[in-house]
Design a protein around this nucleic acid. Structure first.
Length: 370
DNA sequence: CCAGACGTTGTT
DNA sequence: GTCTGG
DNA sequence: CCAGACGTTGTT
DNA sequence: GTCTGG
């Protein structure tokens, strides 16, 4: 599921992530109600986020950015009802064609939501540990979403959206069984937003790319009022008893990790994603969505990992694609550009899947640094 | 026909 | 709005 | 989803 | 534990 996100992006970053503009000039963008947007490290349903949608009938042809409330309130909701944004803040992508509340939105009300990352809580019995999931290179995640509008008794029009979910990627299964639908490349984005045919099935799948990474964060992020860079600061987890024991009796911990690769076991790595990344196969394309950032790749996707095959007609649509890098090239992490956060700025450690192995190779690291 | 629902998540 | 159940 | 409450009576 | 509120 996906019930909490970080979105401190600027409007032009959202536009860019969703493939709307080529430059930083957002002034020409059709933007609606953007004054309601409050960038936040801790966004939950009920809050407004910038949404990219196709222009409504009668407007300019180009897509537009529209600030909408997270948590779908269907247009048929009684005018006297109190809108409940927590009832439908997610939509199961597997069943959107059957569910009456969502099916009617599919032809014309598909949209995109761009965020820096999302939070997921790992349940351990009665304990809950939140993790922050994001792209390693800090480019925004683009979620597939659906929107609707509803008029209340006062005649005010409320725009709301719901984020599509799918089963979890292999890499994140240890954490959860559901994840948001991440449109990992320009083709997916274009198909979800612009394809007039109902041929979007192929993009509604788990994002399996190895560049989706995570780490544990403070449980304080559970409080909606806790909104500051500390939300995304990595914390050191206390090792559990069995982890300690297994470390004592395992001479080569990395080898033990490798043995889990491809298996059904959960990576015993709630400590950090880096631990698990040693399990992924070098050079193996695990994803159907992930697009290798190669400059000269011209084709839609290599067949080796293009998974759910696109029909011939659909490749036509993919032909519109531009290089993904083109729209992500100048994303930079900009945690500092919001000046008035009450908490101290997060000092995100440089950490990649490359050096990941080193970090967990040491037995000492399991006792925390002193 | 009319009335009433229309959703996801997690947990055991 | 549209489908299901009675 | 997570956080936070979870109750009644009688008196002023 | 379970319900309500956001």
């Amino acid at each position: 599921m996906c019930g909490r996100v970080r979105c401190t992006l600027h409007v032009h970053q959202v536009a860019r992530a969703c493939g709307l503009t080529s430059g930083d000039d957002a002034s020409s963008l059709p933007a609606r109600q953007m004054d309601r947007y409050r960038p936040s490290y801790n966004v939950s349903p009920g809050a407004c986020l910038p949404v990219v949608r196709k222009a409504a009938v009668g407007e300019e042809a180009a897509p537009a950015i529209h600030c909408m409330k997270w948590g779908l309130v269907p247009s048929f909701t009684k005018k006297t009802d109190k809108p409940d944004h927590y009832k439908m803040f997610n939509a199961r992508s597997e069943s959107i064609k059957e569910k009456t509340s969502f099916r009617r939105l599919l032809p014309t009300n598909r949209c995109l939501v761009a965020v820096e990352g999302f939070y997921e809580w790992k349940k351990d019995g009665s304990k809950k540990q939140p993790y922050y999931i994001h792209f390693e290179d800090q480019r925004p995640l683009v979620f597939a979403a659906l929107y609707d509008s509803w008029s209340n008794s006062e005649g005010e029009i409320l725009y709301t959206f719901t984020i599509l979910t799918t089963r979890c990627s292999a890499a994140l299964e240890w954490l959860h069984d559901r994840m948001p639908v991440i449109l990992g490349n320009k083709d997916s984005i274009d198909i979800w937003l612009n394809s007039c045919a109902m041929n979007f099935e192929a993009v509604l799948r788990p994002y399996e790319g190895p560049d989706l990474v995570w780490y544990p964060v403070t449980p304080a992020v559970g409080k909606r009022s806790f909104d500051c860079p500390e939300c995304i600061k990595e914390i050191q987890l206390k090792p559990t008893g069995d982890k300690l024991i297994s470390m004592f009796f395992t001479l080569k911990p990395a080898a033990a990790d490798q043995s889990e690769k491809g298996g059904t076991q959960k990576p015993s790595s709630e400590l950090s994603q880096t631990h698990y990344s040693t399990c992924s196969v070098k050079g193996e394309h695990l994803s159907n969505e992930y697009e290798e950032p190669k400059k000269d790749e011209k084709t839609v996707q290599s067949d080796d990992f293009a998974s759910p095959k696109m029909e011939t007609g659909q490749q036509e649509i993919c032909g519109i694609k531009r290089e993904f890098e083109e729209i992500t090239a100048d994303y930079k992490p900009k945690v500092e550009n919001i000046s008035s956060w009450p908490c101290s700025p997060a000092k995100k450690k440089e950490r990649t899947t490359k050096n990941a192995g080193e970090r967990q190779a040491s037995l000492l690291s399991y006792f925390g640094k002193k």
